[in-house]
Design a protein around this nucleic acid. Sequence first.
DNA 1: TGTTCTCCGTCAACACCGCTGACATAATCT
DNA 2: AGATTATGTCAGCGGTGTTGACGGAGAACA
Lengths: 235, 235
Amino acid sequence: MSERVVPEPQRRRRRPTKQGVVLSAELIIDTALRLVEQHGAEALTVRRLGAALGADPSAVYRYFHSTDDLLLALADELIGRAQDGWRPTGDWRADLRAIGLRIHSAYLAHPQAALLAAHRTTGRSHETAAVEAILGVLRTAGFPDPEAVRIYHAFVDQSLGFAALDAAALALPAAAADADLRVWQACYARLDTTTHPHIAATAHLLTTDMRRSGYPYALDLLLDAAAARLPAEAR
Amino acid sequence: MSERVVPEPQRRRRRPTKQGVVLSAELIIDTALRLVEQHGAEALTVRRLGAALGADPSAVYRYFHSTDDLLLALADELIGRAQDGWRPTGDWRADLRAIGLRIHSAYLAHPQAALLAAHRTTGRSHETAAVEAILGVLRTAGFPDPEAVRIYHAFVDQSLGFAALDAAALALPAAAADADLRVWQACYARLDTTTHPHIAATAHLLTTDMRRSGYPYALDLLLDAAAARLPAEAR
DNA sequence: TGTTCTCCGTCAACACCGCTGACATAATCT
DNA sequence: AGATTATGTCAGCGGTGTTGACGGAGAACA
């Protein structure tokens, strides 16, 4: 039944639902993102989405082939939002740092979508724009092409990897997320000094540090290492 | 009904199932891993697991409180396999590199399971052993505790993030994986020079580099940056 | 050996999920 | 005004995780 989806630009008849709502792909995407944001990861189901829209759940399938299709659309939206309003400053390090943090937080704002979409290569316009921007920063900074590509690869995959990892933590059902966090206090903080001396010695640091994302620090490490590889004549 | 789970060491009565199988937590974990490996992540349902075991699906709940509980056990098993047989050499950089690559490849050996498990904190024995080992390497090398903990955090999450990312690529259905790869050749290699000059200039490098995992290079960058932060008196 | 106790595998059922084919009707076109 | 058809609605399929009740098999003790 995939053929019932009509591409958005060709839509002509917009029949209101019983509850008087006029649907559109954009409205569905916005509603879905709001649903995830307000009611947690597990709220994004077709039935609840239908209820939130004020329409029969199956109406969603007039706009997206499947929930996966909807999630890819959400992902494209997220990439767009991450890049939205960004302009290069000319300082390659600050620029890369800003892009990385933008990607990370854009995905984290919608963990459920991020989880399912972070590892896809879409080739759509928002993605290619981001790739072009990052490569541009690196090549303009003076990295030779082979090095620029390797750093680009490491940078992007690190950003997406951390985004997916941290999104996964947020996307967990509340109970599981609680459990994950409490492991550090209830388990790691109480390990025996003789069997786990290094954990015992740093337990207080671990329990506070593991509450935050490791991404900003990891990003700084990557930028440090990249800076050290920048050819001397480019500095 | 969480109380019906009896810890493995206290189990005394092992009644065979109707099909004559004697259950155990270990058997269930092995079967689950095999199931995921052979039939993909979506095959890991309680009902299919029961069928694969030769037991009623609900019997699984006598060994694990929930599917999430089972997943954590799977995650710990993978960590254990990654650490299996590893011994520190005394060279902190080589040791960390070895551990990172081991984690990465252990997860990639079971991509579908890795996808589900990479982002969980288990607090179980194999995990604590790995944490202890990594912290030991860093502290023995001479990193002060706060720095050791931050580097530990970045190192572990980077390894797991890349593992999940690369596992996701391997776990895709063959058709989708082909499509993802072809995006680089069919889409990025053909972008206009005027709209995407940087991509166009490096397309040949991109198409070959994006075929590999970016993890080894990203790991080297992280180790470079860590080495630069090692206190002078410790070198 | 016989009895009791209780562990644990089985069963049926609940509430939810994604998704589909058939249907009805309102919005557009001729 | 009438025909067409896009699209919202409905009922329902086959799946999911999970649970409470039940009963038979193993162990423990006499």
